[in-house]
């Protein structure tokens, strides 16, 4: 059983929902990313999504784009991301770590090297934003061979037949994109999300996480009432942007705790 699956079943037995914060590796610096990762866990995160910086993050809104740009300015790319992940795993053997990124950096170092680095850092799952299932059969098969969960996005526009196809490939959990748009957008329609999550759950036994538009405790609470996990990213990165090194961890802790309590 993968670390992600174990965490979900443990939470379920306690009747709790997973809180999954997202940050970008190397933002605002390599050292701070390392500290933030542990702070997130300490403040109540159940799993962590770590973004691999990319020069052209097409699915991301302005906040995560800026995070990527800061990370790249710090010379953090895919290899440095794995170094950060490996160091985190050295100190924390329990919290699932999910990498989120775009196809090109993965292809640039090659699947085999990518998998080797995943194993070395003991990474639990991968979300590859621009790899729809029809373009990633070989890749997904390799992830599975290596016991790494292949987490797929489902969108408001994904039709039922397609959901059924994607479910066959997916492991770990399903990530429902709560709105038509990029990360960090405003105003999700809770009723619509609820309806869609119910539809997905009727088709699959996998846990369903919701992300892209969750930015405050109220929304998180509402979404958590009908899903298994909340992903929150841009809101944390905004906290990184407005904090200095002295109060950053504290400010991030506050946000995470407020969401943790709400769900």
């Amino acid at each position: 059983m993968s670390r992600i699956t174990k965490t979900f079943s443990l939470l379920k037995s306690k009747n709790k929902k997973a809180l999954i914060p997202f940050i970008t590796a190397g933002d605002p610096s390599v050292e701070m990313t390392k500290k933030i990762l542990h702070q997130l866990v300490e403040s109540g995160a159940d799993m962590i999504e770590l973004g691999i910086p990319f020069s052209d993050p097409m699915a991301d809104g302005p906040v995560i784009q800026r995070a990527s740009e800061r990370a790249l300015a710090n010379h953090v790319g895919i290899r440095k991301t794995f170094e950060i992940a490996k160091e985190f795993r050295g100190k924390d053997q329990n919290t699932p770590l999910i990498l989120m990124g775009y196809a090109n950096p993965i292809e640039a170092i090659g699947f085999d090297e990518f998998l080797r680095l995943c194993k070395e850092a003991d990474v639990d799952g991968i979300i590859t934003v621009d790899y729809p299932p029809e373009e990633s059969k070989e890749y997904v098969a390799k992830l599975k061979e290596n016991d790494i969960d292949a987490i797929f996005l489902l969108a408001p526009t994904t039709e039922k037949e397609r959901i059924q196809q994607i479910i066959k490939q997916a492991t770990g959990f399903l990530y429902y994109v709560s709105l038509k748009g990029v990360t960090g957008a405003q105003n999700i329609d809770i009723d619509q999300v609820k309806h869609r999550v119910a539809e997905i759950k009727s088709l699959s036994d996998l846990p369903v996480g919701v992300g892209f538009g969750v930015r405050d405790p109220e929304t998180a609470k509402a979404v958590a009432s009908f899903s298994d996990a909340i992903v929150i990213g841009s809101r944390i990165i905004q906290e990184i942007e407005k904090s200095d090194e002295n109060n950053m961890l504290e400010n991030i802790a506050k946000i995470i705790k407020s969401i943790r309590e709400a769900i």
Binding site: D56, M58, L72, I78, N104, A108, D130
Partner: peptide
């Protein structure tokens, strides 16, 4: 240039060794 993935397709692409578009 190496082959890469950008803007929805796979093609020859100017990039660094870690896949960042240059």
């Amino acid at each position: 240039s190496p082959v890469g993935v950008l803007h929805g397709n796979r093609t020859y692409m100017m990039q660094n060794e870690e896949g960042q578009i240059i």
